[in-house]
Design a protein around this nucleic acid. Structure first.
Length: 921
RNA sequence: GCUCGGAUGGUGGAAUUGGUAGACACGUUGGACUUAAAAUCCAAUGGACAUUGCGUCCGUGCGGGUUCAAGUCCCGCUCCGAGUACCA
């Protein structure tokens, strides 16, 4: 039989489905291994060749681990909530669930054709009530928890209520919002409403007033990238900063643990660094500056308490609570105008116009805590309300932003650290010796920081403080297509539903738009209230809600009583290998870790970090093709001649270009405009130009996997995607090279077949040469898979098949183990050959061949002999010669004489089994 | 600006610990087979010089350095990619 991949692949895909080959259950007799892919959002466009890259790699690894005796959990599911389906629903009125269902079906078909070893019994979809029941449930748990800095973990709110009842708030060290201290008596005297208000400041899922980009015309909150120049990208309506009541998750409570956990995981340095920057820990001090006119102090955060004597002014953010309090009458108008202007700017604008220095004087002064001098308080939008206290002490000599501000508004600049020329620019480095700083003079920066903190602590005007850049995650969306919050309101206070009332299913609505009053779409639902008649929350959860804990649900996906059973978590523990795109570095991968740490505190999961090893697959870029039209004509000129004319470069569909040569007839048919096209050719061909760009429909460079599978088969596609290059590297897709892999597949097939294409294997004993090829390859493949070097693995197969072909080897003793080696990469052909060899069970169950070093032992080593570092010739020598013997043999060798002639030997370096280098002069 | 990656033939890439640079493919060229094409097979293929052969020199973004030996280590640059952005 010919290598008929279409028949073979169909046959085995059916077999796997029918036999449930990849179904996996807890099996205490085997070690577990959990391989996870980042689950996809099922978009309407389907998969392109870039999507399966990571899935193929993880599939190879999963299959390999199975051959190695592991019980492998390798599931797949869908991140099914998302904006595109909702937008489509708004446009067409079709329920997003229907769109999503259709898209998922298409995704599963496409995935099925590539031959993945997913256990589809464990599929999860975030939009499935049986799944989001547990997303909602975790939310209720977060709502009922607070974070104790003392025990460094989440504790229950009822415990906190007990503490308040007994001791008041004084001794509670919690990650919380701003709360005024109260005594036990005061607590007991409060009414339920007041108590709930206070508890809200402690909950890990809490409601607070948060500034958002509100677009009244669209009736929704927009993300930063949905706003441009103060207008909505969609529709161009005005957008304003508005404070709204929003649910948030107190991710910041876990900042330190999120940072510490990075030391325990096997992730790339760049990814860990990204997370560290995102968490943004900075160590410094909080310092209170007394106000001149009030018996009150302004709190600031600084990382440079050593430069306190250089503080010549203070700045508060335009949103700061004390703007009114600090503004004197004379400045009133100016301040109001400035604050209004600052508020009209979106965060994005403020970011992009970094260089613009703006600000206004309040007219008030603070008192310098050390020198007692008056220093002016300004308002400027380079100070952000969201970080630190929204107020700073400005040290223009040693901070470039303060410097620019002081220069513009003519504020004194006092140098307090030696080094740098203050007349030109600020000196920000943390190096030098203190000056102009009274008791700190002469100290190094490092020592001065300590001394300054000691002093402010003694004076009771501040203390050491750690700040994080990380912000709590806003968890509310005014959208339809997301998880409903399991929350109802009683007398205006939010309460969560009990587990018996979950899932709270997404209700039907007549339209997927906000109401006329500007409420979110859920407000349109009929009877959107509890049994008791209390109104339910109308916001929904964001995209990252469902993806934060999906890896846990795969462990026990059908459990209707629990998120997952204790047996399941005790067996599967955590994800051993996680493969996905780097775009989730700071979103999903922070939220998931937070989610997991919370569940860890609850005693529900057994590992504090969910993802042991993580690999970021690179992007597959497109390779666009171009034609060159002479401007104003319908004449097209070939690539090499394009500079002789005034041309316009036009993207052309890569499907009508082969090896940069344009299919002219297909081009004419491609678009009506080109039907009458004329061509100026080179050597009778139209050569296209090319460039690497992102893969996109609009650039006509999208390669769809279905077409390639149709033409070459899934095994070839799998091999080729791996052969393209290292998994973590971005690389252009180029269909050309797939032919080489396809040739290899047929060559491999031919090893098992004679000239007439009959399946023939010999049972003769394998020769030493054949065994050497096999075992060399076993070692190489094993090593390459273990270090995730899948591209070199493919070339090792090619080398082995080339060598076995040269040896005319068709021996079962070699080809049987070889089939197992290749099975993780090319499972269909491996199954087919395996069954032709007479096996009745799937090759999936076969044990990985064991490497035997005896078969690859060499008697000789071909020494490269260098003179002054330049390789001149090779000399075959017995492998066990000593250094001295090698040296002797090399110097005696005929080829050496030419290089030694008339020279003195200065040194001879012999590295056994590596190299010989002779230094002559 | 800051942080993290990266740069090797015409192309994708290999070289795992400092030890033969360019594995394996693609493409190209030539040849075999064929009426012809496809498929297949064989050979050549980093550059320059020399081609009568042995060959010789140069070569991993650029400039230095360490070393018997550098694609790999160190210092200084250039360019490209990703992330982030007034974080006090």
């Amino acid at each position: 039989m010919e290598y008929n991949f279409q028949v073979i692949e169909q046959k085995w895909q059916n077999y796997w489905t029918k036999q449930q080959t990849y179904r996996v259950e807890i099996d205490e007799s085997k070690p577990k291994y959990y391989v996870l892919d980042m689950f996809p959002y099922p978009s309407g466009a389907g998969l392109h060749v870039g999507h399966p890259l990571g899935y193929i790699a993880s599939d190879i690894y999963s299959r390999y681990k199975r051959h190695k005796g592991f019980n492998v959990l390798h599931p797949m599911g869908f991140d099914a909530y998302g904006l595109p389906a909702e937008q489509y629903a708004i446009k067409t009125g079709q329920h997003p669930a229907i769109t999503t269902e259709v898209n998922i079906k298409r995704y599963k078909e496409q995935l099925g054709k590539i031959g993945f070893s997913f256990d589809w019994n464990r599929e999860v979809r975030t939009s499935d009530p049986n799944y989001y029941k547990w997303t909602q449930w975790v939310f209720t748990k977060l709502f009922s928890s607070w974070y104790s800095n003392g025990s460094k973990k989440a504790e229950s709110i009822s415990m906190l209520e007990q503490i308040f009842k007994l001791n008041g708030s004084k001794k509670v060290d919690a990650a919380c919002g701003e709360v005024k201290n109260f005594t036990a008596e005061e607590w007991k005297a409060m009414d339920k409403y007041q108590q709930q208000e206070i508890l809200m400041n402690y909950r890990l899922a809490y409601q607070s007033n948060t500034a958002v980009n509100w677009c009244p015309a669209l009736g929704t909150v927009l993300a930063n990238d949905e706003v441009k120049d103060g207008l909505s990208v969609r529709g161009g309506y005005p957008v304003e900063r508005k404070v709204m009541k929003q649910w948030s998750l107190r991710v910041t409570a876990y900042a330190q643990r999120l940072l510490d956990g990075l030391d325990q995981v096997d992730w790339s340095d760049s990814l860990k660094e990204m997370q560290r920057n995102w968490i943004g820990k900075s160590v410094g001090a909080k310092v209170f500056f007394k106000l001149e006119k009030y018996n009150d102090s302004l709190e600031v955060f600084t990382t440079r308490p050593d430069t306190l004597y250089g503080a010549t002014f203070m700045v508060i953010a335009p949103e700061h609570d004390w703007v009114n309090k600090l503004t004197i009458d004379k400045q009133q108008q100016e301040v109001e105008a400035y604050v209004k202007w600052a508020k009209s700017r979106t965060e994005r604008e403020r970011m992009t116009e970094v260089k613009k220095v703006t600000g206004v004087f309040t007219g008030s002064y603070a008192i310098h805590p050390f020198s007692g001098e008056k220093i002016p308080i300004w308002i400027a939008d380079y100070v952000l309300m969201g970080y630190g206290t929204g107020a700073i002490m400005a040290v223009p000599a040693h901070d470039n932003r303060d410097y620019a501000f002081a220069k513009k508004f003519d504020i004194p600049i006092i140098q307090v650290v030696s080094g740098g020329d203050i007349s030109e620019e600020s000196y920000d480095a943390k190096e030098g010796v203190l000056m102009n700083s009274a008791f700190l003079n002469g100290l190094s920066v490092k020592k001065a920081i300590g001394a300054a903190i000691l002093k402010i602590t003694k004076l009771g005007i501040g203390e050491k403080k750690i700040n994080f850049r990380l912000r709590d995650a806003i968890f509310s969306r005014q959208r339809y297509w997301g998880e409903p919050f399991p929350v109802y309101y009683k007398e205006g206070m939010p309460y969560v539903l009990s587990i018996n009332d979950l899932p709270l299913e997404l209700p039907a609505v007549d339209k997927y738009l906000p109401t006329e009053k500007g409420e979110p779409p859920l407000a349109r639902a009929k009877n959107w209230k509890t049994k008791e008649g209390y109104p339910l929350e109308v916001d929904t959860m964001p995209g990252f809600a469902g993806s934060s804990g999906y890896y846990l649900r795969y462990m026990d996906p059908q459990n209707s009583k629990q998120y997952f059973s204790p047996q399941a978590i005790n067996y599967w523990q955590d994800v051993d290998l996680y493969i996905g795109g780097a775009e989730h570095a700071t979103g999903h991968l922070i939220y998931s870790r937070f989610w997991n740490k919370f569940l860890y505190d609850m005693g529900m999961v057994v590992k504090e970090e969910p993802f042991k090893k993580l690999i970021n697959q690179g992007m597959i870029q497109g390779r666009s093709s171009f034609v060159y039209r002479i401007k104003g004509t319908s004449k097209f000129v070939s690539f090499g001649l394009r500079n002789k004319y005034d041309t316009q470069r036009i993207h052309v569909d890569i499907n009508i270009v082969d090896n940069d040569i344009l299919d002219i007839e297909a081009f004419k048919k491609w678009q009506p405009d080109f039907a009458e096209a004329e061509f100026i050719l080179e050597e009778g061909k139209y050569i296209c130009g090319h460039e690497v760009e992102k893969m996109s429909k609009s650039l006509y460079n999208v390669q769809n996997p279905d077409e390639l599978i149709e033409k070459y088969g899934a095994d070839t596609l799998r091999l080729y995607e791996m052969f393209l290059g290292p998994i973590e590297q971005s690389k252009p897709w180029d269909t050309k090279g797939i032919e080489g892999v396809y040739r290899f597949m047929r060559k491999f097939w031919k090893l098992f077949h004679n000239k007439d294409n009959d399946f023939v294997l010999s049972d003769e004993k394998a020769t030493a040469a054949e065994l050497k090829v096999l075992h060399k390859t076993i070692a190489k493949i094993e090593n390459d898979i273990e270090r995730f070097s899948f591209n070199t693995g493919v070339s090792a197969f090619m080398i082995a098949v080339n060598e076995l072909s040269d040896l005319k080897c068709n021996k079962r003793a070699i080809l049987e183990p070889f089939s197992i080696l290749i099975a993780p990469y090319a499972p269909h052909i491996a199954e087919e050959l395996w069954s032709l060899m007479g096996h009745e069970q799937s090759i999936t169950l076969a044990e990985f061949p064991v490497f035997n070093a005896d078969f690859v032992k060499e008697n000789d080593f071909s020494y490269p002999v260098s003179f002054n570092g330049k390789m001149r010739f090779k000399l075959n020598l017995p492998i066990d010669l000593s250094k001295e013997e090698v040296e002797k043999a090399v110097l005696k060798a005929e080829e050496s004489q030419k290089w030694l002639q008339g020279k003195t030997i200065r040194k001879v370096i012999v590295v056994p089994k590596r190299i010989v280098n002779i230094v002559v002069g």
